[in-house]
């Protein structure tokens, strides 16, 4: 029979168990390792790779994967492997900082809104709702056009758009926490906002923040890829993964590897983060849900 009922027991959460659950789960381990691998080779790659990503060699343009160039070359003869690694580096940087802005702004706005109540809350929530209604890609496109193209401005633009759903979520959480006994106690003892936010709210919001951060990285990378395809990404000769994919799109009918390898890199990266986020999310959710049937 479908969906059976199972009496189970609520399990207590403790650090050892969290650790063992993470380590024992092969998926999580694989994802974490893969991400680590990505970061390591992209940042360390420039030291031992034979080819520089921007060096052109028109004699070898558009060659497929071979012993010389493991992943082939692009239309200017640049080694694709080197370019992908360099692109990965840039994409990672953009995604990291965009996520940082996202989490920081989202958490601050959300928690201030949730804690203060009254006019400040209404105002901030209204602001959040307002920004939530503005189509995000409009804002990003606008911002990237107004600010000059460049890595820094891209992640600023992305961060300014990504923080809105985070703030919404955080505000919801904080609003519920607001009336919790320990918060009230802290207030009664005269704790200031800063103290309450950082010592009480932050630890309690940690699971939500972690999950949001983990899901925010792939969002940022994909958004950056989108920008590149639209033509608003980093400027040549630097290239992010998005730019590589965009270039590959032009020629993929004839030289499919130029599109395939950047796409593969990107997809694996995004997949890892999504899986990781899933598992972390499930981990933290199981703890609060006990399935004790008997009474």
């Amino acid at each position: 029979m479908p969906f059976p009922l199972t009496p189970g027991a609520a399990t207590e959460m403790d650090p050892d168990m969290v650790y063992s659950r993470i380590v024992q789960n092969r998926f999580v381990l694989a994802c974490l390792l893969l991400i680590l691998l990505y970061v390591l080779i992209s940042f360390g790659g420039k030291f031992y790779l034979p080819y520089h990503p921007n060096v052109q060699n028109l004699y070898e343009a558009n060659t497929g994967p071979s012993c010389n160039h493991w992943l082939g070359t692009d239309y200017l003869g640049r080694d694709l492997l080197a370019r992908i690694l360099a692109g990965l580096r840039i994409s990672l940087v953009i995604a990291f900082f965009a996520t940082l802005i996202n989490i920081t702004a989202g958490f601050l706005v959300g928690s201030i809104a949730g804690l203060s109540g009254g006019i400040a809350d209404r105002f901030l929530t209204g602001l959040i709702d307002l920004f939530w209604c503005i189509p995000p890609f409009l804002v990003v496109v606008m911002l990237t056009v107004v600010l000059e193209p460049g890595v820094k401005n891209i992640f600023i633009a992305l961060g300014m758009v990504l923080w809105v759903p985070t703030a919404r979520i955080i505000r919801g959480e904080v609003y519920q926490l607001r009336n919790a006994p320990f918060i009230r106690l802290a207030r009664m003892h005269g704790a200031g906002y800063t103290r309450i936010v950082f010592m009480h709210i932050l630890p309690n919001c940690f699971p939500v923040l972690l999950t949001t951060a983990i899901f925010s990285v792939p969002d940022a990378v994909l958004a950056e890829a989108f920008l590149s395809i639209v033509g608003l990404g980093v400027t040549a000769p630097e290239a992010s993964l998005g730019v590589l994919i965009s270039d590959g799109l032009q020629s993929f009918r004839v030289y499919p590897w130029q599109w395939f390898f950047p796409v593969l890199t990107l997809t694996i990266f995004v997949l890892c983060f999504n899986l990781l986020g899933d598992i972390i999310h499930r981990l933290f959710r199981d703890r609060s849900k006990g399935i004790l049937e008997n009474d």
């Binding site: 792939p218 989108f226 994919i245 799109l249 796409v263 997809t267 995004v270 997949l271 999504n274 899933d278």
Partner: peptide, 15 residues
Amino acid sequence: ATLGLSIPNFALGAG
């Protein structure tokens, strides 16, 4: 579903 979530639509379209 996780796969569908991770493949960006430009990749999918071209593929």
